Structures are given as structure tokens and as C-alpha cells.
Simulated scan of single mutants.
Amino acid sequence: MSTPVRPRIDHSRYARSTGMVVTGVLLLVAGGASAVMGSQAAISSSMSLYGSRDAGSGFFIFAALAGFVGLIVLVMGLSQMTTNIDLTAQYVAEVMRRQETGDDPASTAGEAGGGRRVTSSAARATEPEAVTGETRRSRRDQ
């Protein structure tokens, strides 16, 4: 019985996107919070008799930088996420196409089986990385 041939995936385009998305969102939130704090400092300083005109400007500078960098990182993370989704969709479409056309050796048992369809659990059992219950027990006992 032959092992199933899996479709090729371009792994060079795959990368994790969660870290970039989370970092981008956190930087955007930090920038927004800094802008609010800067505006509160500017308002309270302008209401004070001895207030400064430059109060809160540091908050605004940080808010602008954090917001700009956060937006760029968020867009990069979302772009990578959509790339990963496209790669997954291409892989699934290729697997489904192979199963429908019969190009996949895992979809039929071959000449010895009389051309009958093989269930997904039987197809998985032919894969080299499949682990049977007996193998799991033997690994646990070691």
C-alpha cells in the first residue's frame, strides 16, 4: 500500500501573524491613551493661572509615533494573516480536487482493494506519522 501524496505548500510565504497583530493593536491603544492624557494635560494647564502652553506635548508626540507604528505593524500582521488563510485555502482546494478526481492514492485502496473508497481513518493509518493505540502505549511505558 503506497503512502498518500500530499500537495505541496509554499512554506516560504507562511509566517505567524498573531504577534504582529497583537503588537499593532497594543501600540494603537497606547497611542490613543497617550493622546487622551496629553489632551487632558493641555486642557488642565490652559485652565490654570500658571499653566504652560507646552503641557501635554510629550504625550502627543508619543501618541503620534505609537499610533503610526502601531497602524503599520497591524496592517503587516493582517496582511500576513490573509496570506496564511489563502495558503490554507489553496491546500484544502488541492486536497479536495485530488480526492474528487482520484489522483490521491489515499482516496482509493488501489488494485488490491478492488477500487473501493478508503475512509479517512484508514487513509490516516497509511501515513508514516500516524500513531496507533499500541504505539502510544509502548511510548508511554518507556
Rank of each mutant, 00 (worst) to 15 (best):
A33W: 09
D10I: 04
T3P: 00
G32W: 01
V22S: 07
A41T: 10
S17G: 03
R13A: 15
S52E: 11
Q90W: 01
S138V: 01
V5I: 10
D10A: 07
S39E: 08
Y14P: 01
A33F: 08
R137H: 02
M1C: 05
E134P: 00
M81W: 11
G70L: 03
D86N: 12
R8C: 02
A112K: 12
R137S: 02
A63S: 15
E127K: 05
R137W: 02
L65C: 10
R124N: 13
A42P: 01
E111V: 11
I9R: 15
L87E: 08
H11M: 14
G56Y: 07
T135C: 00
S57T: 06
E111D: 11
A42R: 07
R117N: 05
T132C: 07
R124V: 03
G24W: 06
M37T: 10
A89C: 01
V69M: 07
V29T: 04
E127W: 00
I72Y: 03
S46Y: 06
R97M: 12
S57H: 01
T108F: 10
V5W: 00
I9M: 14
F60T: 10
G24F: 05
S107R: 12
L26F: 04
L28G: 14
L87D: 04
S45G: 02
D141Q: 10
T82M: 14
A41Q: 14
L26E: 08
Y50H: 04
A33C: 11
V118S: 06
G133K: 08
R140V: 02
D141N: 07
I61A: 13
I9C: 11
S57A: 07
R136Q: 05
S57P: 00
M81A: 15
R136L: 09
S34W: 00
S121L: 12
S39H: 09
L65N: 05
R13Q: 14
A130H: 12
G110V: 12
G32M: 03
T132V: 09
T23K: 09
V131T: 02
V92S: 05
G113A: 14
D103W: 00
M37V: 13
E94K: 13
A30Q: 00
T132M: 08
R116C: 01
F60L: 15
H11A: 13
T119Y: 03
E111Y: 06
P105G: 06
T83V: 15
P4E: 01
A130F: 12
Q40Y: 04
L71Y: 05
A123T: 10
G77E: 04
P7I: 04
G67D: 03
P128S: 09
L26M: 10
V75S: 04
G31K: 04
R117T: 06
G58V: 11
G58R: 13
R117I: 05
L87P: 09
E129R: 10
A55R: 02
M37G: 07
V5E: 05
G32A: 05
G32E: 00
R137Q: 06
M47T: 00
